[in-house]
Design a protein around this nucleic acid. Structure first.
Length: 466
RNA sequence: UCCUCUGUAGCUCAGCGGUAGAGCGGGUGGCUGUUAACCACUAGGUCGUUGGUUCGAUCCCAACCGGAGGAGCCA
């Protein structure tokens, strides 16, 4: 990765720390801009650790007390202060780093008083959430959000390389993707009065989207292979480490596609993303591996290199019954698999990502395709160790009569799904797709255990700070 | 929404029915090509809120508020 092009657009020409540290030869004269992570003073000179977010590592800066700006810039520069440093990159005399910056001039952009909340020591994740505006300046969160950015890019690459068309499905919607959870209402405000009924801005009740799937299907039934990647909103009052009220979801949808190919794509995508992270984010992953999850890199390499397991729901139930494990919740055909059951499959039985498919139709939404057995639908969940469901998908019911019957069976009015039903009325095709929770993927890739710590500004029930 | 745990210094925590302590961080001084540096000194807290029990509550009880973990639901 080169920073050269970016460099030209920068108003204040500077060299990113990542570029300096990566250099094989002495980079010579540079200007570095960044934030002080720590300072160690001596009588004749100071050591500064500078971080600019371009990579995990800091650049060690040696400042002789005799240089220009020492008293004005270096003496008052505490942890958190922002600096411009000009100087020469030389081989470090000390241990622990190859290059260091011998400063010739230092300018203080912004000081940080002694109440700067980030200390040199580690902080709890809970405390970091309370200073969400400053936490990207920490090692952990800088790494998390660099990986987040890279994974977003890799997702686009994965689909674009395969000819998928990126579709922007609406954020405000009038359709409830049935079974996808509680929705936020969209209303206009007139003072304290919430307008309803005839005064609806859109002439009907509208919501923040819980899924772009239904809209995505319409584009798949025209452009063949599409994907969405955008924010999603769920108004569920859930307090867990895996749920947020606002999160990002990736939803590919493929025409002329059945459940088997759908599962192939989901597995290939997970492998691609894990492989890309190992290739491009290894420094950040190394940090997670050391401080968050000792087995992380080994697990990611395992996921990249080994094939995933695949079992039907029926087989999974039999497996669980024969396991001899004592589960808190019963294992019975027709019941949803509980978190503890999913964990057993991925963490104890198979010890790898596992796709479970062909679920009983009673526990799945109306749009999933009914199988020949009359009992199950072509649904699939991709489960990963430590997190559980990371992908949920299905082949969609493309037969008009069957879909109409499904709507009825689920107690839904056909009138509410007119345009969706039309897809089956005009040139219907077999098609399938899935949803990937972006934050759950990030939890899996980084080892970070709480969804709130992989979203820049998390929204959960009762919390919309920052 | 349900269950469990939790709230004491800026942070992480200890503590006790008689109104509080450590480590780190901060400040000051010293020292050193330092590496989450080191040494000395120092400042800093109506113990989440409101009631109750008690001669007396930070400690016991209740409610509320905040935080965390789990369940359900899902991504």
């Amino acid at each position: 990765m080169k920073f050269g092009r970016w460099f030209r657009y920068c108003v204040m020409p500077r060299t990113p720390v990542a570029e300096i540290l990566r250099s094989e030869t002495p980079p010579g004269a540079v200007t570095v801009m960044g934030w002080v992570r720590t300072k160690r003073d001596s009588k004749a000179f100071s050591f500064l650790e500078i971080n600019d977010g371009s990579c995990l590592s800091n650049l060690q800066v040696v400042v002789d007390a005799a240089i220009a700006g020492y008293d004005e810039a270096v003496v008052p520069a505490r942890t958190g202060a922002s600096l411009v440093i000009q100087g020469n990159i030389v081989e470090s005399l000390g241990k622990g780093q190859r290059w260091e910056l011998q400063a010739s001039k230092v300018e203080l952009l912004g000081g940080a008083p002694e109440d700067y909340p980030l200390q040199k020591k580690g902080h709890s994740m809970e405390f970091m959430r309370s200073i969400a505006h400053l936490r990207p300046r920490s090692n952990l969160f800088g790494a998390v959000f660099r990986v987040r950015s890279r994974m977003a890019y890799a997702i686009h690459r994965f689909f674009q390389e395969r000819g998928f068309v990126y579709v922007h499905t609406p954020i405000i919607t009038a359709s409830d993707c049935e079974g996808a959870g509680e929705m936020f209402r969209v209303v206009t405000m007139d003072g304290e009065v919430v307008k309803t009924g005839d005064e609806e801005f859109f002439a009907k009740p509208t919501y923040l989207t819980v899924s772009g799937q239904l809209e995505g299907e319409t584009f798949a039934c025209a452009l063949s292979n599409i994907y969405t990647f955008g924010p999603t909103f769920r108004a569920e009052n859930s307090h867990t480490s895996r749920h947020a009220s606002e999160f990002w979801m990736i939803e590919p949808e493929m025409a002329f596609c059945d459940l088997m190919a759908d599962m192939d794509l989901a597995e290939a995508m997970i492998k691609y993303l894990v492989s890309d992270a190992l290739e491009t984010c290894i420094e950040d992953l190394g940090f997670f591996n050391q401080f968050i999850d000792k087995g992380l890199i080994e697990r990611l390499e395992f996921v990249r290199d080994r094939s995933f397991e695949r079992v039907t729901y029926t087989e999974a139930v039999e497996l669980l019954k024969a396991s001899g494990e004592s589960f808190e919740y019963p294992v019975e055909y027709g019941l949803n698999l509980q978190s503890e059951h999913e964990r057993y499959l991925t963490e104890k039985h198979f010890r790898c990502p596992t796709t479970v498919y062909n679920y009983p139709k009673e526990i799945k939404p109306f749009y999933m395709r009914k199988n020949e057995d009359g009992k199950t639908v072509a649904a699939m969940d991709l489960l990963v160790p430590g997190i559980g469901e990371i992908v949920g998908g299905s082949q969609r019911e493309e037969r008009l009569e069957v879909l109409l019957a499904n709507l009825k069976d689920h107690g839904l009015e056909e009138s509410g799904y007119g345009w969706y039903v039309d897809l089956r009325r005009y040139g219907t095709v077999p098609h399938a797709g899935f949803g990937l929770g972006f934050e759950r993927l990030l939890m899996f890739v980084t080892g970070v255990a709480n969804i709130r710590d992989v979203i820049p500004f998390p929204r959960t029930p009762g919390v919309a700070d920052f």
